[in-house]
Each structure stands twice: as structure tokens, then as C-alpha cells.
Deep mutational scan, measured.
Amino acid sequence: MALNTPQITPTKKITVRAIGEELPRGDYQRCPQCDMLFSLPEINSHQSAYCPRCQAKIRDGRDWSLTRLAAMAFTMLLLMPFAWGEPLLHIWLLGIRIDANVMQGIWQMTKQGDAITGSMVFFCVIGAPLILVTSIAYLWFGNRLGMNLRPVLLMLERLKEWVMLDIYLVGIGVASIKVQDYAHIQAGVGLFSFVALVILTTVTLSHLNVEELWERFYPQRPATRRDEKLRVCLGCHFTGYPDQRGRCPRCHIPLRLRRRHSLQKCWAALLASIVLLLPANLLPISIIYLNGGRQEDTILSGIMSLASSNIAVAGIVFIASILVPFTKVIVMFTLLLSIHFKCQQGLRTRILLLRMVTWIGRWSMLDLFVISLTMSLINRDQILAFTMGPAAFYFGAAVILTILAVEWLDSRLLWDAHESGNARFDD
């Protein structure tokens, strides 16, 4: 018995066209964080690309023209004298008006014999932002004059995390709450300039795509075929072959399989920071003279006294001054041990922890910024005066060393310790 099946006739004509040209192939790229070699397709503007294995951002879609970056830099340069030299806060102490600005706080630190601690604050609040705007201006002028731009481009990517104007702005709020127990506070004209400078700096850093600047100024022929001998440069993120001198053909720094002496430098910085954190938390970090009496505060006791007036601000200072430094030390110690013992479990967790400490590390400088600003506000000789204690130097040095330890660690070593050939990683 035959089955009668109805015929289905399409209502619209289906047209099949042959592909007349070869589909576009992607360029081969190595991930600078996990060293995976993959094919990167062509990316349009405002599109980002991520590593298929570790999800690290390979290409950032946010990109401004150099002219727009230069305009932002010149605007920031105009704001800087007002943000640093004009009063941020006014207080009335014992019937006398006192003005506080950024430069005055750094000068008070240096004047009291601790120039190293003052230079830490100076670099993060004044030096690094000033280098940022002058570097962008150098790129703008240098591109037109045919100057060598490689050193500036190499420095810009590392400079971003040292620009800490946003953290200093939080420190202004913390210092205001600490001082309000002794005097009446009012915002100064410099505060508005400083807030504007923070906003412009944040926007500029978020749109400063150094890798795209490398592509514009020093374009290189990408690798179009897969080759395990391809290496990625950690300076400019170019994937290719080393030249005859073993250097990256684009930025001219040595092109090595792994960062040289990464573990040794990381261990040295980490152990030194552990040693410095002990006096930083045991010795007094601030000293207040009130009517001839002397009151010393460690980091913890200062947080407890701050909690009596504002528990939320005390929580912020606790996280930045105690929780973050010790968390960074514990995480980095764990990561280094996992590399030495070739741990194969929990790779995803370790990668996330490394990215976390990379982002939060700079916030530990908050305590030094609060001390710097408070020193310029309260300084009335023996009637009422505020000065920093010996722990300030140890704390600042420990924070900087932990930042350097994270920067010096080559994250690809975590993958080397893991089993080879993993296309995915999980716990």
C-alpha cells in the first residue's frame, strides 16, 4: 500500500549564491595573561575582544583620537594649579581661619623630617597626573615632529594605576569627618577644581587605549598563520617573532617567553612588605597634641575612634588600611606557593584573586592621604596640633611594595603550573 505524501511548494523562490571570495581570516594573537594562541577576527570600533580561555580583555573598544586626548590633557593642565594650590577646605580653629590644600599637606610631611613619605604622596597625587598630561601632550606634538614615541607609550600603561586623584578625593571626605570634632569646616574653591580634575582624569584614563596608539604610530604586520613560536610582548602586546637582537619589532624591548626574574622580584617585594606591615600596624601612625597632652593612634585605634562619629567612614578606612593590605599579602603568598608547588586545582579562583588584588591594591594609600591633609588643617603649635607617627613611612612603603609585587608577577606562570593543553579552566 503506497502512502500519498503531499508536496510542499515554497511560496518564495530560494536563491543560492556561491561564495565568490575567501572568507576573511583572523590574525593570530597570544593572550598576555595566559599565553593562549588564538585567531582574533577583525574588530570594529566600539567592540571589545576577550581571550577565549581566561576571559582577559585583549582589545578595548573604547578609543579616543589623539586630538581629543590632547584637549583633555590641556584642560587638566589648566585645572591643576587651582586643584593643588587653592584651598580645598576652610576650618575655623580657636577663632582663626585655616586653609588646607594639597601642596601644603605634602610640605608639612616633608617639613617634619619625613621627606620619603611626603614624596610618596607627591608622586601619586601630583607627579603621576602631571606625567600623564605631559605624556599625552608629548605624543600629540611628537607625532607631528617625527619624534620617538616608544618610551612614552611604554610608560603610559604602567602609569595608570599610580594616578590616585580619586583616592585622594575620598581622603578629603575622611579628613573632614575627623577634623569636624575640633573645628567648623567649609569647602574651599580649590575643592571644585579638584573634583573637576578627578572627573576629567577618570574619563581620560578610561578612554586612553595605549594598544590602539601603538597600532597608529607603529603598525606591524600581524601573524596570519598559526605558529607556536609566536611570542607576545608584555610592553606593547604585539604578537610576532623577535628581531635579530631578540627584541620586539614594535617597542624594541627584549621579547622573552616569560617575564625575567618574575618570581624572585615578586618574592622579594612580598617578604619586604610583610616585614614592614608589622611596625606599620604596631607603631603610632598619627599623633595629636591637645592642650599640651599627647595622644597617639595606631591604624586600628584611629579607626575605632573614627567609628564613634561615623561608622560608615570608619568601615571604608578599615577596608583600605587593614583589610586590603593583608588580603593582598595572603593572596600573593598563596599564588606564589601554588606556582612553586605546581598546583593544578582552583586555577579559576587564583586568576580571579590576582585580578582582584590588581584592582584594589592602590586604595591602601588612602590613610597616607588623610594624614597629609589633616596635617595641613590642624597645626596650632602646642594648643592643638596633628602630626604623623613613625608607622606612616612603614605603611606607605608596604603598600608600594605590594603594588610592585602584583605588577611583577607574570600571570602566565600560573598556567605553566597548571596542566598543559587546557582550553578551559575551572575549579
Rank of each mutant, 00 (worst) to 15 (best):
Y138M: 03
Q7M: 14
W162L: 02
T298M: 08
A56Q: 08
E21Q: 13
A385T: 06
R216N: 06
L271F: 07
I351H: 11
V133L: 14
L290N: 05
F393V: 14
Q186T: 05
L93E: 01
F194H: 10
H90A: 13
R97T: 14
T349F: 13
V102M: 14
S309Q: 05
V121Y: 08
E407I: 12
A223Q: 10
D367C: 00
Y168C: 12
H46G: 11
A100P: 09
M304Q: 09
C248H: 00
Q345I: 12
R225M: 12
I172G: 07
I91A: 02
G188T: 11
A175F: 01
N379L: 03
A392T: 03
L94S: 01
I106M: 06
T349R: 14
D367M: 00
Y28K: 13
C54A: 00
G302N: 01
Y28W: 11
Q382I: 14
G146K: 08
T5I: 10
S301Q: 07
P10R: 14
Q33W: 12
S420P: 15
D60P: 11
L337Q: 11
D410S: 00
L213P: 05
S65C: 07
V329W: 12
F333Y: 08
F38Y: 15
A73S: 09
V324L: 15
N101H: 05
D35E: 08
I339Q: 05
L234C: 15
T387P: 00
D35S: 10
D426M: 13
M72R: 01
I43A: 09
F238W: 06
G171P: 00
G389L: 01
T327I: 08
G246V: 07
R158D: 15
D181Q: 03
V406F: 09
A320M: 13
V370T: 06
V406H: 02
L277M: 07
L213D: 03
I322G: 14
W415D: 06
T75E: 15
L200K: 07
I253K: 01
I287G: 02
P87W: 06
L40M: 12
L263Q: 08
I303Q: 11
I403A: 03
L347Q: 15
T15F: 09
W140Q: 13
I8C: 10
L156D: 15
I339A: 05
C54L: 00
G361K: 01
K12H: 14
N379M: 03
H252L: 06
C251I: 00
F122H: 13
S262M: 03
V324I: 12
M375L: 10
W140T: 15
D410W: 00
A269R: 00
G20S: 09
P390R: 06
G113M: 13
I360Q: 06
Q244A: 07
A269N: 03
L368N: 10
G127W: 03
Y218C: 08
G85L: 06
S411C: 08
E211I: 13
M304A: 05
A398S: 09
S411H: 08
R231I: 07
S65Q: 07
M147D: 01
T387Y: 06
F369V: 02
H46T: 12
I199L: 11
P6F: 12
S135Q: 02
L94E: 00
L149E: 04
R158N: 13
I360H: 11
S193N: 03
W162G: 01
S364E: 00
G61F: 15
A137N: 09
Q55D: 09
L66R: 05
L130H: 07
G421K: 10
L191I: 04
L353A: 14
M109T: 07
A100W: 01
A175R: 01
F123D: 07
R412A: 01
G95K: 04
A280M: 07
I185T: 05
P24Y: 09
R59P: 11
S273A: 08
G389A: 03
I177Q: 03
V179N: 02
I274R: 00
A196V: 15
R59K: 13
C34W: 00
M147W: 11
I299Q: 13
I371F: 08
S48N: 15
V331S: 15
I351Q: 11
S338H: 11
I96P: 04
L77A: 14
F74W: 06
I319F: 12
L197I: 04
N44I: 12
H261W: 01
E157R: 13
H46P: 12
A392D: 06
N44P: 03
W92E: 03
I177E: 03
L347Y: 12
S308V: 12
Q264N: 01
R260S: 07
V189T: 12
P10W: 10
L37P: 13
N379P: 01
I19C: 10
R362A: 07
P249T: 07
A417F: 11
I167S: 04
R258E: 04
D243F: 04
R226Y: 15
P81H: 11
R256N: 03
L153H: 03
D427M: 15
A128W: 01
F217E: 02
D381T: 03
M36V: 14
S286A: 07
L335P: 05
F386W: 03
V275Q: 15
D381H: 08
R350P: 10
L66I: 14
I322R: 02
M120K: 01
I185E: 14
L283M: 06
R53A: 10
I351Y: 06
S420M: 10
N101I: 01
S411I: 10
F194D: 14
R350C: 10
A2D: 10
Y218G: 05
E21R: 10
